[in-house]
Simulated scan of single mutants.
Amino acid sequence: MSADEPTKPSPSLYTPNIDEIKKVFTRFDTNNDGKISASELIHVMKSLGSQTPDQQQLTQTMKTIDTDSDGYINLEEFTRFCIGNEQHEEDDDGGIKELHEAFEMYDLNKNGLISATELHQILTRLGERCTVDDCVKMIKSVDSDGDGCVNFEEFKKMMASNGEGAS
């Protein structure tokens, strides 16, 4: 996958498009070396609402995202993680564990649903400029049961369709 390939922007629960992912990546790459280190990842996890992660959480997160195992998260790895690209997953569960972890990052009140308010809080922490109304629209686009929230099944379907380039 080259950086020159065209990418079709598509709304997701992470960020609306590749340019937004790059902005988020740059924000967390605090020393501007083009990669996120384990120490920078701590700040990412804290900004996403986690308490200071313990060494095991940090190691597991690095292992999940750092697919080339060089000890750093580069833009390609970060992008792949954000858009839910599962073609590089090595787990025998087809990446469900990672999807569930991503879902749980947004489910701030741990009720099994991502509300527009929760989505807004996370995107704001990531430096995105969006309104709660924008988040309501994002959720509406994937909310198949009409409850105004995204459950894990809807999240999985959305991530699968993003991976296929479907709308």
Rank of each mutant, 00 (worst) to 15 (best):
residue 120 H to T: 00
residue 96 I to M: 11
residue 95 G to C: 02
residue 120 H to F: 13
residue 99 L to T: 03
residue 120 H to G: 09
residue 95 G to T: 00
residue 125 R to P: 15
residue 125 R to L: 05
residue 110 K to Y: 04
residue 123 L to G: 01
residue 100 H to D: 09
residue 102 A to D: 14
residue 102 A to G: 15
residue 124 T to V: 05
residue 102 A to T: 13
residue 120 H to K: 14
residue 121 Q to K: 12
residue 111 N to P: 13
residue 118 E to N: 14
residue 119 L to F: 14
residue 111 N to I: 01
residue 119 L to Q: 14
residue 107 D to Q: 08
residue 124 T to I: 01
residue 109 N to S: 03
residue 108 L to T: 00
residue 112 G to N: 04
residue 122 I to D: 10
residue 114 I to H: 01
residue 99 L to Q: 09
residue 100 H to N: 11
residue 99 L to D: 09
residue 120 H to R: 13
residue 112 G to E: 00
residue 104 E to T: 04
residue 107 D to C: 02
residue 124 T to S: 10
residue 103 F to A: 02
residue 100 H to C: 07
residue 118 E to T: 02
residue 111 N to F: 03
residue 117 T to Y: 13
residue 112 G to H: 02
residue 118 E to D: 11
residue 102 A to H: 15
residue 108 L to M: 08
residue 118 E to M: 10
residue 98 E to C: 12
residue 101 E to F: 08
residue 96 I to R: 11
residue 125 R to I: 00
residue 118 E to I: 05
residue 124 T to N: 10
residue 106 Y to C: 03
residue 108 L to C: 05
residue 121 Q to D: 06
residue 98 E to L: 12
residue 114 I to Y: 04
residue 102 A to S: 15
residue 96 I to D: 04
residue 111 N to E: 09
residue 117 T to D: 12
residue 108 L to N: 03
residue 118 E to P: 13
residue 103 F to M: 08
residue 100 H to P: 11
residue 103 F to K: 02
residue 117 T to S: 10
residue 104 E to N: 12
residue 115 S to F: 12
residue 97 K to G: 00
residue 115 S to A: 05
residue 118 E to G: 06
residue 98 E to N: 12
residue 107 D to S: 01
residue 97 K to V: 02
residue 119 L to E: 13
residue 115 S to T: 11
residue 110 K to H: 06
residue 104 E to C: 06
residue 110 K to N: 06
residue 113 L to K: 10
residue 95 G to V: 00
residue 120 H to Q: 14
residue 101 E to D: 13
residue 117 T to N: 14
residue 95 G to K: 04
residue 105 M to E: 09
residue 113 L to S: 02
residue 98 E to F: 09
residue 95 G to E: 04
residue 120 H to N: 14
residue 112 G to W: 01
residue 107 D to F: 02
residue 103 F to P: 12
residue 101 E to P: 13
residue 99 L to A: 05
residue 107 D to H: 03
residue 105 M to R: 12
residue 104 E to P: 10
residue 113 L to Y: 05
residue 125 R to N: 12
residue 125 R to Q: 10
residue 106 Y to W: 08
residue 104 E to I: 01
residue 99 L to W: 10
residue 115 S to C: 14
residue 100 H to K: 14
residue 109 N to F: 07
residue 122 I to C: 09
residue 106 Y to L: 10
residue 109 N to M: 07
residue 122 I to E: 08
residue 124 T to A: 05
residue 119 L to M: 15
residue 109 N to G: 03
residue 104 E to Q: 09
residue 124 T to H: 10
residue 107 D to N: 08
residue 109 N to D: 10
residue 123 L to F: 04
residue 117 T to I: 07
residue 109 N to T: 01
